[in-house]
Nucleic acid binder design. Structure first.
Length: 265
DNA sequence: GACCCGATTGTCT
DNA sequence: GACAATCGGGTCA
């Protein structure tokens, strides 16, 4: 049974590699590439370039909200999701960051690379989390939730195939991308994306969201899952679109504070 | 090496 | 709301 299990695992790994290897991406024509790299109002939205990522972690975490993450699979399928929830990790001084105290290891190297560099790490031995390096050494932004826009059935398949439950009930739309590791499953993002450049990569990029989703009301709340980081545990470094049903965890108290401040109380 | 823990998720109560 | 799953990587010897 064990060897069979390993065999299945290897097969899954091979499948995901085949699906995600950059080499497998059909050599795009110059025209296609140009339309990705250069703005074309008639065609597709502009891809966000290196300058976008070159801002401090908190600013970038807020700026991500409303933008659209695009994942292009090996077969050309494009998956799209609007970013609705992020967390900022500030670098050496941030006790909750992997870069706390200036720790730099092979794993977290992406955090110290230029803004826009991806930092993908494995959590709990079975899940991935996707971060984007920001301005500031060791600072980055964690993507926590997306509103799925395009390719929902593919996302559902990717999420289902990675779950072990034999009774794989169909997942609701809200369950596709409402968590840092869920969105990695739904967009087929794994360790192979670590240290790649979101401003340059052919398999994944960021597009400017529509104007209406450009400056949503934003809730600032405590970050999730960082138990023992002292004062840093409570700092409002998690940001999400107020009222969005696609967010992973809603913080009622933080929202009350937001509405109180908007009402001038 | 040995040991411990985790920026999570799904399932069960 | 509690808890198991599962293993890479950090830390220390």
């Amino acid at each position: 049974p064990l060897s069979r299990k390993i065999g299945q695992k290897k097969q899954r790994l091979a499948e995901s590699e085949q699906q995600q290897s950059p080499k497998e991406t059909p050599p795009s024509t110059l025209g296609l590439q140009r339309s990705i790299y250069f703005s074309n109002p008639e065609d597709r939205p502009a891809r966000l370039g290196p300058e976008f990522f070159d801002q401090p972690a908190v600013t970038l975490a807020r700026a991500f909200l409303g933008q659209v993450l695009v994942r292009r699979l090996a077969d050309g399928t494009e998956l799209r999701g609007r970013i609705v929830e992020t967390e900022a990790y500030l670098g050496p001084e941030d006790e909750a960051a992997h870069s706390r105290g200036g720790r730099q290891t092979p794993r977290n190297r992406g955090m110290f690379m230029k803004p826009g560099t991806l930092y993908v790490y494995i959590i709990y031995g079975m899940y991935f989390c996707l971060n984007i390096s920001s301005q500031g050494a060791g600072a980055c932004v964690l993507l926590r939730a997306l509103e799925p826009l395009e390719g929902l059935e593919t996302m559902r398949q990717l999420r289902n195939s990675l779950r072990k439950s034999t009774v794989s009930r169909s997942l609701k739309d809200r369950e596709l991308c409402s968590g840092p590791s869920k969105l990695c499953q739904a967009l087929a993002i794994d360790k192979s994306f670590d240290q790649r450049d979101l401003a340059q990569d052919e398999a994944m990029w960021l597009e400017h969201g529509p104007l209406e989703s450009n400056s949503p009301a934003v809730v600032a709340a405590a970050r999730i899952g960082i138990g023992h980081a002292g004062e840093w545990t409570q700092k409002p470094l998690r940001f999400y679109v107020q009222g969005s049903p696609w967010v992973s965890v809603v913080d009622r108290v933080a929202e009350q504070m937001l509405s109180a401040s908007t009402n001038g109380l």
